[in-house]
Amino acid sequence: MDKDWMSKNKLSHEYEVGVESFLQFALGNATNPNEIPCSCTRCGNLQKINVDIIRAHLCCNGIDLTYHKWIWHGERYPINNLMKDEQKSFAKEPIDMVHDAFDSYAENPNQFHKLLEDVDKPLYPGCTKFTKLSALVKLYNLKAKYSWSDKSFTDLLSLFGEMLPDENELPSSLYDAKKILCALGINYVKIHAFPNDCILYLKEYENLTNFPVCGTSRWNLGKKAMLNGFPAKVLWYFPPIPRFQILFRNKEICKDLTWHADKRVLDGYLRHPADAPSWKVVDHKWPDFAAEPKNLRLALSSDGINPHSLMSSAYSCWSVVMITYNLPPWLCMKRKFMMLTLLISGPKQPGNDIDVYLAPLIDDLKKLWDIGVDS
């Protein structure tokens, strides 16, 4: 009994020393000593109080054992480390991007050779740091990162073109830049749709000009619209399979796709979809699928947006976004991993008829499930 009492007393003393060390660290990094997040098991860093109350909470409730890195109290290293890991995953040279796009140009080798020329062509005569394509890719990444408007990016390209030496290869407008960059991107498909969301003009309906039930035209009313072939409604479909292939071709991202199986902490806390009961149900129903951690677990999300940013406008279009849950929690909800798969034109929401628009996506997902695709 004496040994047990002494052991407990020693542990209690060590805990008190640890609490004081933690509180001193938090005070040293606090902007307001009366508003410090409490890391006890009940507050979980959600409640901000003064040090004396935090000390009492930690003694009565104990500290949250999952709080290993004190990121809410001034310890910055883990966040920076995650940012470096994320940046490392996307550090990709333009020549690698061109090689990834090779399969898309099997039927058009001349255009692929044009891409290779842009990779090697100096930005201006005598330039050794940037090529035409590498400079454009870096500038466009900045545009996306800081949400520059199209007009501001065009003005920037124009100004840079005047600053650079004569005979430089930098495009003078966003339009010219996109013509170069689109060659690196993923193709999309425009699919005509019935205005009332009944069918897509695919498969057996592909060559129809009128809906077989009510006879409504496939095209916009008006002679000019019909002559120019303007459809009454359009679905923009961005096939996910080529983008999945790009994920697996990147060595760093390919490692991250197995994070849920290799590096996830198994302590009963819900931090990732892999900790949820629904994930375990899938593992139980399809054990062969669960046996390979690289098999993708996907989620779909849809919402309406007003593309013109006018509250008075009734027009809206609906987007369907796909999310890959294999990735670590700090990556799976990043914009660069959220894949836009469908864009349903307005002006009305599809409602319960959204299943009509999901048909091409479902076909591709069935192909992945039943047959599979080489990366």
Rank of each mutant, 00 (worst) to 15 (best):
K84T: 13
K84D: 15
K84R: 15
D85F: 03
D85I: 04
E86I: 07
E86M: 10
Q87C: 10
Q87N: 15
Q87E: 15
K88Q: 10
F90Y: 13
A91H: 09
K92A: 05
E93R: 12
E93T: 11
P94H: 02
P94T: 03
I95Q: 04
I95T: 05
D96H: 12
D96N: 11
M97F: 07
V98D: 01
V98R: 00
H99Q: 12
A101E: 01
F102I: 05
D103V: 14
D103M: 12
S104A: 15
S104P: 02
S104C: 13
S104V: 05
Y105K: 04
A106G: 10
N108W: 06
N108C: 12
P109H: 07
P109I: 06
P109K: 08
N110V: 14
Q111W: 05
Q111K: 12
F112R: 00
F112E: 00
F112M: 02
H113L: 12
H113N: 12
H113Y: 13
K114M: 10
L115I: 03
L116F: 03
L116N: 04
E117M: 08
E117L: 08
D118N: 09
D118M: 11
D118P: 01
D120C: 15
D120F: 12
K121T: 10
K121V: 07
K121H: 07
L123P: 00
L123I: 03
Y124K: 05
G126Y: 04
K129G: 04
K129Q: 15
K132D: 01
K132P: 00
S134M: 05
S134A: 11
S134N: 09
S134D: 06
K138S: 15
N141V: 06
N141G: 14
N141W: 08
L142V: 14
L142H: 11
L142G: 07
K145T: 13
K145L: 13
K145Y: 06
Y146R: 06
S147Q: 14
S149C: 10
D150L: 07
D150V: 10
K151Q: 13
T154M: 01
T154A: 02
L156H: 05
L157D: 00
L157M: 04
L159P: 01
L159R: 10
L159H: 09
F160S: 01
F160D: 00
F160L: 09
G161K: 03
E162K: 15
M163T: 05
M163R: 06
M163V: 05
M163K: 11
P165R: 11
P165W: 08
D166N: 15
D166V: 14
D166F: 09
